[in-house]
Computed example of a mutant assay.
Amino acid sequence: MSEVKRYHVTDSGLVEGQALGRISVVLASDYDAAVTHIRDLELLAGQEMKSTELATNAGLRVCLERDALQALLTAADERADVLEGLLLAAMPSKVCKCRECGGTSLTWYSHIKSNSAVAEGRLRTNEMSCVFFLGCDDCSETLAWVDADQIAAYLPISKP
């Protein structure tokens, strides 16, 4: 530290400055201030290390979360591919393009339909069924439909 004054010892006492071949000393108050300053610098360095460690841990957590989300997305994509294959297998004929407009942009949709004349909101689960239908994205033509029961026949049975 530049604020610490150094003295050298002579026959007449302490003289400010340094001299060759003489013993140099500092005042106790200057020494204490220098030690405190060094301790403060070490504490700051420790806090910076902790901040760096926290940032590294946060980065690692983000990477792990990203990998977990990617795994979930991959599994969902695989399930969608399997279900699309099941839908195509359950269809009576393979549809590749729209018979109305010739468009090839086709999408599967699902719909819950009522099997009774009961008012909406008072239905039981056995009075409803699910239907998948293939629609043209260009002209909204319905090209094919399949009952969910037909799809369920192709699904594997898993035991708990």
Rank of each mutant, 00 (worst) to 15 (best):
V15F: 01
R66F: 12
H37Y: 13
V26G: 03
E78P: 00
R66D: 15
K5A: 15
M91Y: 00
S29L: 13
R99P: 01
M128R: 14
T142W: 02
E100R: 15
S51Y: 06
G135F: 02
L44N: 12
K5I: 14
K94V: 07
C139F: 02
K94I: 06
P92S: 05
D11M: 03
H37N: 13
Y31H: 09
L64H: 08
Y154F: 15
E120H: 08
T74W: 15
Y109P: 00
D11R: 06
A33N: 13
V35W: 08
R124K: 14
Q150F: 00
L123K: 09
E100W: 10
H8V: 03
L20M: 10
E127T: 09
A153E: 11
E48G: 08
L27F: 08
Q47A: 11
S93V: 04
T10D: 04
L134W: 00
D81R: 15
T52W: 02
A58F: 10
G85S: 11
T142A: 13
C98F: 03
S12I: 03
T52K: 10
H8W: 04
D67I: 08
T104S: 06
Q70P: 00
M49S: 11
A45I: 10
A55L: 13
R99F: 04
D149I: 05
S12T: 11
E42K: 01
R66P: 01
G103P: 00
G103D: 02
E84A: 12
R39W: 02
S114G: 07
D77M: 12
L20I: 09
M128N: 07
E141L: 07
L44D: 13
I157Y: 09
D30L: 06
I112Q: 09
S140P: 01
S116P: 07
Y31F: 14
K5S: 15
C139P: 01
A33P: 08
H8F: 07
V35P: 05
E120W: 03
S116D: 07
A75H: 06
R61L: 14
S116L: 08
G85H: 05
T107P: 02
Q70R: 10
